[in-house]
Structure formats: C-alpha cells, structure tokens
Design a protein around this nucleic acid. Structure first.
Lengths: 345, 345
DNA sequence: TTTTGTTCCGGTAACGCTGCCGGTAACGCT
DNA sequence: AGCGTTACCGGCAGCGTTACCGGAACAAAA
C-alpha cells in the first residue's frame, strides 16, 4: 500500500456509503452487525488508521497537550514522565517544548502550539519570564491551562507545586539544629516564585529560632552551577564567613561544594551544606549532600490529572492549587552533630 | 474575541472572497496592493492565526517531527536540545515521546504520531527493542526517518552516531597504558548496537596489546546503576579479580564505584575505572571518573539536519551514516601512573 | 388496508484552508 | 471597432472526517 487508506476506500470497496463506514467504525448503534463486521474486517486488512488531522479539524479538538518547560533537567524530566504517564492513559499525546529558560523561546513555542496544535497547556514557566501575556492569550482562547512546579501569582490557573516554603524551612531548621549559627542562602532569580518561597522558609526558620537575618548572607544568583560557585567564593571571603549554606537547587549546591573544597574547608565540620531536589548526584559525591526531596513524578501525574479535569469540567478551577510536601533527606554534608558528639565523648 | 478568527471572517467583513484573502495572506502576486493592505490590517486586528490543522490536512504535511527516545537522561536530553535547535530554525516543531526503554511503549508512541501528526521521525531505539516492524511501517508510509545515537543495522535509514568502537578502544587502551592487566568490561544489553560496538573497541584494544581476553571479564548487564553494582560485586569476588573496569555508561560506572568503595578498594591504585558519556556527575564524585565524552548536542543538530535534508531530497539517503568521534576525558579514577611514579620516586 | 414504528442506510453540509479554473473590466494596440 | 493582454478577483472542489436529516424497507399494530 502506498497512501494510507481512508473511510472512502473502505466505502467504495464495500459498496456502501462513507457515512455508514464512519458509523461502523465508531460502533454506532444504528448499523447492521454484518455490515459492522465487514467494515472491521476490511479496515483491518487495509490497515486503516483514522486521520487525526481531519478528526481534529472536524471536532475542534486535537487530543494533544502542550507541555512547556524551561529545560529537561532531572526534576523536570521526571515530572514530564509523570505527565506523560497519565496523559497517555487518558488518550492524550503530549508535545514537549523546552524554552531553555529563555523568554523569547517560550513565546515562540507557545504561539506554535497555540495554532490549533493542542487542546491546552501544562506549563512550568521559564526563570527569565516576567511578563505573562503569551500565557494569558492561552486563556483568552478558552484553552485549559495548568501550571506546575513553578507557579506564579501572575497566572490565574489551576496548579500543582510543592510546598517550597516548607522545604526551605526544613532545610534551614535542620541546619540550626545542627548548631550552625551563620546560615547563608543561595536563592535563585528574584522574580522566580519557587526561589522566593524557599527563601521565605529560610527566613521563617531563622525567625523561629530567633536568629537575626543578615542581608549579606542572602544571595540572589542564577540557577546555575557556575554562578553558585562564584557566589560561594565571595561568601567564604567575608570576614565573618557563614558556617552553613542552603542552596535552593542541587546544581547550585554542587557549585558551592566545589568552592568550599577549593578553600580547603571540611563539610560538615567547618561548613554545612543543604541542597534542593534530591538529585541522584547528591548521594554520589563525597560528602553526600543533604537535600530536600520533592515528589517529582507524582507532581507530574497530578498536573496531568488536573489538566484532564479542567478539560472535562465546565466550572472554573483556577483556584485549585495542590501543594505537595517535600522531605529533607539528611546526608553527611550537614550532620555536624555526629562530629560534635564524637568530640565530646 | 471568543472563537479564533478565520479567513472567512475577514472575507465577510471586507466584502471580498475567501480566495482573495487567502492569496493576500500568502502574499501572492496577483492581488491588489490596497486589498492586500486591508487584509493585513484586519487580520492583525482580529488577531488572525491560520489554522494549522486545516493547512496540514490540505497540503498533507504537518511540519512536525516526531522524536522518539528511550528516556530523557543527560545525554539524550542534550541531543534532543540539539534537534530542537535546528528543527525550530527550519520551521518544524518537535514532538518528543519517551518510550521508557519499553518496547510496547515505543510501538504505542509510534502509532500515535504516525496518525498524521508528523511528517517524519527522528528515532533512538529502546534497548528492549528486538523487532523493528513498527519502524519499518514508517518507511512503508514513505515517511522520512532518521536514526540517531542508537542506530541498528536492522533499520535502513540515514543516521548519525558516535564512533562507539573508537570510544571503547580509547578507554581500554588508556587503561592498558596505565598498567592495568586484568581489564573487565560491563557491557550493556546484548542486542544493543552501541553496547556491542563499545565491546568491540575493548576487544580490539586488548588484541593490539596482545592481552588475552577472558570471557569471565565480559559482563552483559542492563543499562542500570543497580545491575552494574551487583555485577561489580561479583567481579570483585573472583579469585583472580580484575584490576580495572570499563563500563559503557556513567550510570553503570557509578554503580561500579559504589561496589568498589564498599569493598574498601582504592581507585585508581587498586582498581581502575572508566565510564562513558562524560556526564557532569563524573567530575563531581571522588575520585573523578574518567569517561568517554560524546558530542551530544552536535549529534542532535546533525540528526535534525539529516532529517531536513531527507525531507527536501528525493533520492535515497539511507546509506548515509555520519559518525562523530568521541574523546576520552581522563580523571583520577584511572590514572594509576601518577601513583606508580610517585612511589618509585 | 392503513397507520405506526424499527432498523438501517445514504446524501449533504461543514470544519478552515488552498489550487485551479474561469471570468470581468480596463487598457493598449492594430 | 475589434482584438489580445494584463490585473485582479470569485467559485468550486476537495483534503478526511462526522453530525444531522430524511427516507426506504419491512414488520407490527390499528
């Protein structure tokens, strides 16, 4: 066979009308059982596949979901896998587009998918994005849209995220409990929600333990290993240098670790370190890096479920925001107490 | 605006025919400049976006590329980024599907995209795949198809890959030069091309240096950290245990490293280790793991370029196979000579 | 016999767009 | 005046599919 078969071909060969074939295909009630069988048999033989394009054009839905992510690092790839899982189950195909943390790329991708390629979007915004018009356009077109991981108050849409504040709090409280006094934080870009929420958790923990916050210990830098490396170098050159660092991503933690090692400081004795994401690498380096684990796969699945609900549900769901709890995984990089106890014994 | 505007709307409002609007849009020569301007102005105002579905249905091409990958680990994600880069430039949108190294999933994804969603495929086959009928179907439909990274002789299509044999050779030769005598290899699944090619390189290097190959030192195991860990444990329990291990992926190298450390052996003094892929993690662990670097981003770009060429080119290109050279990055895990020299001094 | 109801099927229009053909008006040339 | 040429535009068909309507054939009820 050269060209793929259509219902027309089947109709012609069976000497029936295309309407009947169409109905038989969809197992409609008002078609004779024999006819149905014949259609099925022939369509099998011709290897008939319904043309999705025509179908989409006709019924104005594509059964595709546009997924826009800033990148495909460990966490996001895991989330996408979760989305994929649920979407496939529900009969949707996902189109993944990476914005590369670039605002311009995000716009291009959105426009592209918006051109009748998808029924809606599942989005995690780029860190560069400060204007959300291109996403609002999605909503103007009445398209369902769900945000995940990186949600923002500027976008009114159902979403799922982890409790970043709690994560930041857990990490910081743990460092306090381990006896660290001057705890620095490498926060991410200033306009990024997850960055600020983790910072809030940090601040809340300090407040709880009545530790004064020192603005010099709060560094906003890009989500990037090298910047974290540079920032840590600066931190360690202060006259009153911090004795612990909480970085809001593991990539940044790695950068910090490199700077710390270079300086000849020991973890956790001289300086404590906690990261975020619980990427596999944290358990592979020496010392292992304590890190806040987030249920990424689960989060992806929930995002897709929310999307499908939004599709099938008429009423407004934009108030829904599911929040998953993260969980600090403690490794060597922050366990100073082990050494303290050892010494005092 | 509620529903997106169509050329029909524009035609009606301007009191001209649909055809004229269509021509004006495409900047056809035979339409009055004023009419053209009016159409442009109104389409701007109505925020008109041509309906891609209708277009695709009409001219039987979607300008989408289906990308099927077994997973989205570091290397593949980088390759996909390369594909994305070139594809976007050329006006194509990519649809990424993960098969999760599952044969069944691969089939489902292929079928889905095949249903008139894409103009062709760029594929890296799952490690589970031993039958290629679903991919051959793509070719039966006359669809362009390019394979990358994991190419297989069972699929006659233009492709791009790295010189895996050379990579295996470089790694093994390096170990030999460092004075290791009993070099084991953790090869991947037996049916996987990249696995066998790297194994061939290993064998070739041993042959060059007249080292007898020992079948006990050649382990086929799954592409997976844990299996590598178990396999290494077994290797280290042999009466004549190997003094070096070459693993054909970094994930496996990590697994091997864990087993080695657990056993209390030192790298590189007691045992040498070389991985493959040069993932960031190799430079972060202690000791740093030597690893064969592959130009993943570049490879992705070439894959996309091949695809586009195949699209625009009528003649058969299935003989084309571009091969990129990998490059061994030497780190501590295999540099025994440093210690040997140190001792002898 | 006529009426009423089932069961099954075909024709038509439409989704949004483009390719093709043909047509009109205006102009210039013989 | 008649002709061809040019510039511009509209109509129609069709891509593959489904929704809707109407109708034939036959059986059952009146």
């Amino acid at each position: 066979m050269n060209k793929p078969a259509t219902i027309k071909d089947i109709a012609r060969q069976l000497n029936i009308s295309i309407s009947t074939v169409s109905r038989a295909m969809r197992n409609a009630p008002d078609v004779n059982a024999d006819t149905k069988r014949a259609v099925m048999a022939l369509s099998e033989e011709l290897n008939y596949q319904p043309n999705k394009l025509a179908l989409s054009l006709r019924q104005k839905q594509t059964h595709n979901i546009g997924v826009i992510v800033p990148n495909l690092d460990y966490v996001l790839a895991t989330m996408v896998k979760g989305i994929d899982e649920v979407a496939l189950e529900a009969g949707y195909t996902v189109m993944v587009c990476q914005s590369n943390e670039s605002f311009g790329r995000e716009i291009v991708n959105t426009r592209r998918l918006l051109d009748s390629l998808v029924d809606g979007f599942i989005i995690s915004v780029s860190s560069e994005t400060k204007v959300f018009d291109h996403f609002k356009k999605i909503q103007e077109y009445q398209m369902p849209m769900v945000v995940f991981d990186r949600v923002t108050p500027f976008l009114k849409a159902p979403g799922v995220r982890i409790d970043n504040e709690d994560g930041g709090f857990q990490a910081t409280e743990h460092l306090v409990e381990q006896g660290y006094k001057r705890i620095a934080i490498l926060a991410g870009p200033k306009n990024l929600g997850i960055s600020n929420q983790r910072l809030d958790g940090y601040l809340k923990a300090l407040k709880k333990y009545k530790i004064k916050t020192d603005p010099d210990l709060i560094i906003n830098c890009d989500f990037n290993q090298h910047y974290a490396y540079l920032a840590t170098q600066e931190l360690l050159q202060m006259k009153k240098r911090p004795d612990a660092i909480f970085t809001i991503s593991d990539r940044m933690a790695i950068g910090a670790m490199l700077a710390i090692k270079e300086k000849g400081l020991r973890m956790p004795q001289d300086i404590g370190l906690v990261g975020f994401n619980n990427e596999p690498v944290t358990s592979l380096v020496t010392p292992g890096i304590s890190s806040v684990d987030q249920p990424a796969f689960e989060l992806g699945k929930i995002a897709a479920k929310l999307f499908i609900e939004t599709m099938h549900n008429e009423n407004d769901m934009s108030d829904i925001e599911e929040v998953l709890k993260p969980k600090l995984i403690i490794r060597e990089s922050s366990q100073r107490m082990l050494f303290k106890n050892g010494r005092s014994k």
